[in-house]
Amino acid sequence: MKKLILATSALALTAGFAAADVVRMGTEGAYAPWNFVNDKGEIDGFERELGDELCKRAELECEWVKNDWDSIIPNLVSGNYDTIIAGMSITDERDEVIDFTQPYTPPDPSAYVAMDPDVDLENAVIAAQAATIQAAFIAEQGWTLVEFATPEETVAAVRNGEADAVLADKSYLDTVVGTDGLVMLERTEAIGGGVGMGLRESDGELRAKFDAAIQSMKDDGSLNELIAKWEVSSQW
C-alpha cells in the first residue's frame, strides 16, 4: 500500500514537472500557407507542422494560440504566450523589443501583385499589411501606402480597385495570383532577414532549445522538405 502511494505521488510529481513545460505558441492564423485556420477550425500550415516538429525535438509540450497581428508582440512580452511563430521576418526594429531564433526560412524577396502588369509603382497606391516589413518599405520609398489589418484585405483592395498593387511575401501572393485577373509583377524587393520564431528577451533558455531544434531540422534536411511541401520560400 505504502509503495502504491509512493508510486502514485512520484507519478503525480513527474506529471507536474512535465506539465510545467507547456509552451504556448502564438500565431495569426490568417496567412496561408504559413499559418491558417483549416476547415476543421484548427491552426494548420507550414508553421503548424514546423512548430509541432520543433516541440517534439526539443521535448516540449506545445499548445497553439491565435492572436491578432497588431497586438502579437505586446501579448508576447506581457506573457500571454511564449513564442511568436507567425511568418515574422527578423528585423532590427523588432529585435529591439523581442528576441528571435535563427531563421527557419532564408530571406526571400517580397513580390507585387496587381491587376495591370504595367502599373507604375512610384505613382500607384500600394496596399500592405500594417506593421509588416513591406509596409515599412513602401513608407520608406515615399510611395502611397494603404495599410490593412489582415493580408486578405490587402489583396481584396487590389481586386476592387482601392489599391493598384499589393506588396507581400511571394509565397502568400502565390496563393492568390491567377484568380480574378491578378498578376504578379516582375519586380521584387529584397527586404527582410529571413523568418524566425520570436521570444521574450528574458527567455534565453527556451530560445536555445528552439535554436538547437531548428539546427537539427536544417542538418537532416527535414526543414527543406517542409518548405518544399508548403511552398513557403526558397530552400536552405
Binding site: G29, A30, A32, P33, F36, V37, N38, D39, D44, G45, T150, E152, V155, A156, R159, T175, V176, T179, D180
Partner: peptide, 18 residues
Amino acid sequence: RELGGTVNPRFTDYPHGD
C-alpha cells in the same frame, strides 16, 4: 471575415472566392 475571405483549393476542401 475569416470565413468570407477567399480560400485557395490548396488549403481547403471548399474553395470559394471573396
